[in-house]
């Protein structure tokens, strides 16, 4: 038994060492982003190209998911509210749930899967096939061209996608409410906008910016540090999704605490 304890120590120490080295490495990657983002040359064309890829190409998936979420959430909430004779509160309930939590979360999780993995795999593959080195030796800063542009694009586009998801989810919800409660569109949306506060909207936008930044930086970090050939690329893409999703939930929790504290003031 004593022998086992002695054997375990170095392993634990190695794991801790690896964890803290990784943390320091990730921190210096984030720091480098903030150092490089304000320095010329600015890759505007590439930022716009990435915004198109991340934003426009995600629209079909986001539309479908947002719409279904709106319908499903409305249909799931109706029986409980009806029990208390409060079915007329459906638009209020849905709008608060969608704007405060579901819109940003659903969009961020889908983007983490679609965009985060694609960034991780793309940059990872560029790393293992020496394309990043090729950029570097041609006196181009690959960090600026690949990382800064993608992180800016996700940071800009995720809030826009969240607003779009909110709208699509509310439209889905409206369809369900209209069919079952015979509520008109104007009545539905008047109730929606009466229920949403300025804090709801600003916190949702703030959260979305944070989620967007997280998806971009995690995807780039995992891709930029990938190794071991094609297996490494797969791992980078996978790790980008898992890590981004994990961080999104942590951020959601933290922002919720802050917003609740502000609301309680």
């Amino acid at each position: 038994m004593a022998g086992e304890a002695i054997d375990r120590k170095p392993l634990l120490s190695k794991k801790l060492d690896k964890f803290f080295t990784g943390l320091a490495d990730a921190w210096s990657f984030v720091k480098r982003f903030f150092q490089e983002v304000f320095l010329p040359p600015y890759e505007f064309k590439e930022v716009i190209h990435q915004c198109y890829r991340i934003g426009v190409e995600s629209l079909p998936l986001i539309s479908l998911t947002g719409f279904i979420v709106g319908i499903v959430f409305t249909n799931q909430s109706r029986p409980s509210l009806s029990e208390f004779g409060a079915a007329s509160w459906l638009p209020s309930l849905i709008s608060i749930a969608v704007v405060r939590a579901m819109g940003p979360l659903v969009t961020a999780l889908i983007a983490a899967g679609k965009v985060g993995s694609s960034i991780g795999a793309e940059i990872g593959s560029m790393k293992v096939t020496e394309q990043i080195d090729a950029m570097e030796v041609s006196a181009t800063n690959p960090f600026k061209f690949l990382v800064v542009t993608r992180v800016l694009a996700t940071t800009f586009m995720i809030p826009l996608l969240v607003m779009y998801t909110d709208f699509v989810a509310l439209m889905g919800s409206f369809l369900s409410v209209n069919k079952n409660e015979l509520v008109s569109m104007s009545t539905f949306f008047v109730q929606v906008f009466e229920s949403i506060t300025f804090l709801d909207v600003t916190s949702s936008i703030f959260k979305s910016i944070l989620f967007g930044f997280t998806i971009g930086i995690v995807g780039c970090y995992k891709g930029y540090n990938s190794s071991k050939g094609t297996e490494g690329v797969g791992r980078a893409a996978n790790a980008a999704v898992v890590m981004a999703m994990f961080l999104i939930f942590i951020e959601e929790l933290l922002v919720l605490q802050i917003v609740n504290a502000i609301r309680g003031m």
Binding site: T129, E130, Q131, D133, A134
Partner: peptide, 10 residues
């Protein structure tokens, strides 16, 4: 610098 696998941007 001409790379082993050409390193053309995919």
């Amino acid at each position: 610098f001409s790379f082993q696998n050409s390193a053309l941007y995919d």
